[in-house]
Nucleic acid binder design. Sequence first.
DNA 1: TTTACTGT
Length: 312
Amino acid sequence: MSRLLHYGSRLAALGAAAGTGWWFGFTSRELDGLPEGLFSGVFGKVSAAALQGYSMQAPAELAPLNPDVPRVTEIMQYGFPSLNNVRARADYVISYDARNRVPYWVCEHLTADRLAKNPDVDRSKCDFHEDPSIHEYFRSENQDYKGSGFDRGHMAAAGNHKLSQFDCNQTFLLSNMAPQVGKGFNRDKWNELESYCRKLTRSYASVYVCTGPLYLPRQEEDGKLYVKYQVLGPNHVAVPTHFFKVVVCETQSGDFELESYLLPNAAIEDSTPLTTFLVPEEVIERASGLLFFDKLSKKSFKKINGKKVGWF
DNA sequence: TTTACTGT
């Protein structure tokens, strides 16, 4: 039997918006069979400065909330999805895909404190600029996006980093961007999902978000599966077919909940509820080659995609 | 409110 199964009618909206609705199937294999601490300890002995890879010095007020713990350690405490080209920014962490000139993933840690209104931070003062920490062969540039019809879509959202102007500025590095359909997606349904993640900080102590692009296979007329995507500009910046967001919410008492979203990079009807795009985390892990929050036992989640989980 | 583009 084919390993590629149509994932179900619930995802029809994804396929309909993006084209043929083929999907990575998955078996009923145990979700918690993954090796414990696959990446744990790797970064425990490496200083945040060593990971920085970027010469801009963060001002003193950007110290982590807990001065004994580097910010990167707070953001990544439940595991790195992968270890390729990792850079720690002031308030988010990125793994950069040098071949596609977009991120593999970005991780953020949201709290109500850090999202509080700050009159000192003005998004309109921010400008998109290329990332000098990326080798010049692999950087995306503004000219790649200009006239392409695609937005420079933030993976780590600007609206999530309002503690200082510096934090906000760093989200405008082009290494943090991927081409997104503007109207109907980046400025609408995707924006709604980002806004929803911020809203979660009203009811949870911490919200951990991992975001990134996907390039999913589609069945073509010959019946075979192909991965096909447009590339933009002189640097051939890849246009992802989909984007994912994996969200872990932590309560004051240390309970965890997980939600995982997968959206097509296409205009989405405004009336479509976000819950339409909930998929099992495993679908995104198999499609991306990443493992999310792998330091957290799968059994620690009290709720997954809005449903209470009984592990006993 | 936040997301960004295009044209001036």
